[in-house]
Each structure stands twice: as C-alpha cells, then as structure tokens.
Nucleic acid binder design. Sequence first.
DNA 1: CTTCTGACA
DNA 2: TGTCAGGA
Length: 270
Amino acid sequence: MKNELTISEFAKLMGVSVHQIRYFEEKGVLQPAYVSDNQYRMYGIDQIYHLSHILLLRKLGVSVSAIQESMAYTPGQYQQLLRHSLEGVEAEIGRLTELQQFIRQVLREGQNFDPVNKPYQIKERKAVQLAKWLELDWAAALNARHLAEHARNVPDLFESDVYWISDGTNSITLYMESNKRSDLTLPAGTYFTKQVLVENDENLEQHIEPFYTAISAHSLDVGGPLVLVEKSYLSLFGNKKLCYELQILIKPDPPEHTLIKSTPLQKPQS
DNA sequence: CTTCTGACA
DNA sequence: TGTCAGGA
C-alpha cells in the first residue's frame, strides 16, 4: 500500500469533493504528488498541507484566482490580501445586518397587520420624509410599463413602503421613503388608519368611502391628505393580495380621544 | 469499482 | 458545484 492517496481518499480526508480537487488543479493552485501509470492522481502529505492552506484562504473569502497569484506573495502582500478579505467580510456583515432588520420589520408589521379583526387602528407615527416617485392618473392603474420607465430597481422598490397620495386633483402621486430627497413630509402625529387587502389597485377605491364613514362615525377631526401606504412585502404572509394601509392625520387634541381608543371599532363589510 | 476528461445546467 | 456520459 502506497503512502499516497487516491483522489477520492484525499477528498474524503479533506472534506471536499473530488470535483473541487480537480478544479483546483485546473486553476493551477494544487498539483498531485504524481500521476500514476493508470492516469490516477496521487496525493501525499505535502498536498494535505497545501490543500489545508488553500481551504483556509477560501474560508477568508479569497478567490481561487487570487490564491493562484498569492503563491508568490511576500509577507507584506499577504497582509494586503488579508486586509482585503477583511473588508469583504465586513461588507457581508453589513449586508446581513440589513437583511436581519428587514426580516424583523416584516415580522413586526405582519403581526400587526390584521385587516379582518382589527382593520381600524389609531397610531402614533413619526414624521416621514417622502421622495416623489411617479405620478398617475386616478383612472389609470399602475402597470408594467410605468415600472419599466420609472423604476431603477423594482425588487428593492417593493421591499419598502410605497405611498400613494392624491394632491386633490385627478392625479395621484407615488412616493417612497427617503432620507436624501424630501419632496413631501408627512408630519408626526396621531393617525387614524385602516388596513385592507385588495386583489388589485381598482378594488382599493371601494375601501375609501367606508373609511370616511368610520371617521365621521367616531367624530374624528382629521386633516391633511388621505395617504395610502402599499406594503407589498406583507404579501409574504400567505395571501396573494396587496396590503394597503389607509391613513389620515387626526388634528391635535381630538375630542374624546380616549373614548375612541377603548371603543370597539367598526368592522368591515364582508 | 474507481478515475479521467469534457460538457452542461 | 454537482452530475452525467463514455472510455480506460
């Protein structure tokens, strides 16, 4: 029995696939100790150390081609290599942290979103800065063409709230939250809100009348524009419908504020 | 039965 | 990166 291993023995020992070992060879980072007369690659102790080295660098996020070049590196260049890999790891952590926050937000809002049992809620909201996104005719639904013409990145777009605000005319403007540009600021304050699920944009209008009916039923003194917030990411919670929140500012010091909070609010018609 | 090369998704 | 063919 030889002191060298066949490729499958070597792969099993090192915990990698046979394919990967051949791949490293093709990329010029790992040669077999020798090739036997039946064309089998054979691997010895040197290769074990060497592959460990390669695998370590891969863990640090160093690409195979960079490993190839690193074979001739000075200690200083290795430091540079590690600094670069550190940057990559930190960027990855940042990306994952954002993802974590997004998931938490969806979970939080998803638990709060219950249009069947508690469609109407009174919420304290902070001021929010909105950047104008596009303008639509009230009659025209949002279609793929609009998105193609105005969206830089649609997937990102629907991971955040989209604000539909009518300026009183027959057009409606879509805004996104922004900390850079501010075309419109929704003031902080107490908002009367209604959560709805709709099949499409057209069905949204059906919910607007009942919303105002509820407002007058509770003698709320509201002001400012009606704001429709589209939370398409909440569709993650099973339904194929669109999630919207209608909201309108309640003017400061509303009459019987406490009474409203403790009174069961109107259910939506089914 | 194992491996090799090459190709492909 | 896994998988498959076809040959040794």
